[in-house]
Amino acid sequence: MTVPRWVFAMAGIGAAFVLLPLVAMVLRVNWAEFVPLISSEASVAALLLSLRTSLAATLLCVIFGVPMALVLARTDFWGQKVLRSLVLLPLVLPPVVGGIALLYTFGRRGLLGQTFELLGIEIAFSTTAVVIAQTFVALPFLVLSLEGALRTVGSRYEAVGATLGASPTTVLRRITLPLVLPAVLSGAVLSFARALGEFGATLTFAGSLQGTTRTLPLEIYLQRETDPDTAVALSLVLVVVAVIIVSLAHRTGEPSRRRARALS
């Protein structure tokens, strides 16, 4: 298909709309002070906390998201469609709403909070709360991309595996997961990126304390109050990390598309 010229024009406007704010931000960076700004104790603590919690959240996304995607893609039960929509809800939910919902679930007076308290687990204002908030918003990314990949790959290889005597667990381990591994990886990378950017739910649910709950986005939000230079510098760091992650996701995502084409 030859793309009409006016489509290029529209696409150009769209691209500028996305890119210009980034350029504008880069222009505001105080380069002379850049390194000291991003290497301050608070900044480093926020960055490390962000990386640590996002990694933990990604791990949880994989542990629970892969089974969720399998159940959604490979089984058929009453109410499945509704369940899928609900599971994907955090994608469209404003993060603050997510935070409020989590508060009423894991908070001290929440649905499960008292049970946790009895078990001696305190979630409120802890790093755990940050990880929970990040997992909540990031999980749908993994489930969505993996479910699509599972449907594309289809279940024919799994059927062959079963007739060769492989138990369902063996089929999952030796056939299904290797086949959708690229999708698991790209889904995990997307989840990590989403977790890294998580702000609203964390602010509402986990609080904000340096080294414990104040992730990079929260630190940026706070620094903006008094020290716009630091806020801009940290924003740039976050953008760079995000760009690296997104390009990684694209690279790992490609083989799965190639394979999908070969199958069809």
């Binding site: 602010l203 509402t204 609080g207 904000s208 304390l209 939000y221 706070l222 109050e225």
Partner: peptide
């Protein structure tokens, strides 16, 4: 020794 230092009074 606060457990959290919020960005606003509302929070």
């Amino acid at each position: 020794t606060p457990v959290s230092e919020e960005s606003s009074v509302t929070d």
